[in-house]
Design a protein around this nucleic acid. Sequence first.
DNA 1: TTATTGCGCAACCTTTTGGTTGCCTTATTA
DNA 2: TAATAAGGCAACCAAAAGGTTGCGCAATAA
Lengths: 116, 116
Amino acid sequence: MTAILNNSSTPPALIFSALGDDTRLELIQRLLDGTPKSVSYLTQGFNISRQAIRKHLNHLEKAGIIRPTKVGREQLFQIQIETIESSSKYLAEISSQWDVHLNNLTEILEDETVDR
Amino acid sequence: MTAILNNSSTPPALIFSALGDDTRLELIQRLLDGTPKSVSYLTQGFNISRQAIRKHLNHLEKAGIIRPTKVGREQLFQIQIETIESSSKYLAEISSQWDVHLNNLTEILEDETVDR
DNA sequence: TTATTGCGCAACCTTTTGGTTGCCTTATTA
DNA sequence: TAATAAGGCAACCAAAAGGTTGCGCAATAA
């Protein structure tokens, strides 16, 4: 499922940097139910100011992790899941590269113990 | 494959934060061939100082992404792939949660268009 | 129409981050 | 043994991050 449009691929470091903060990870969790939410609404439950939350949302937006929609005087944010997925793929790629070389090392070790 | 021991699970935000820098991502790439590498060796090719690289390595180490081994006067670093994998799982979990709610929304829309 | 609510902008502050340089110690190796 | 290569430690610096408060404006509710 998922993935429809979006091909704007933010650089991995920028995405990870945006994910590298507890407040922002919590904001993402709260947005996961799929319904777009306003800045004020998202501020509830945190004990930091609306402006602080706004700055975190800016980070997430610049990284392409969330997307704003203006509705009246409110600005509603929703998850842009493709961005999360692209960073997920980046990590999967790292793991698979590691496995390749790990397999090579294992083969070498086996060759040695068989004493060829 | 992969995963043997390690259960020290670094908090996700700390891991992502460590991944959120181009220099550190590049260091990880260079360590992916599986052979442990020293600070001086890893410094080659970057045009920043050894101490700067050392600080980046500290970040990665604190996040549990790399692991040092002391050999003579050298300190060799290698990837701790389980940490990467744990953050990868975190992202996969986000994607799957998103899909769940997206499916729910789709069902609602279908119900509406069928006009029940 | 008058409050009130949602937000944006900007100034300001402190801590963290990403770098630097200088100097000292400890293994190597010539 | 003397020179050299690998690194640790610490001081220092500028810029970025994560907050705050104050204020003004536009949309909504009384």
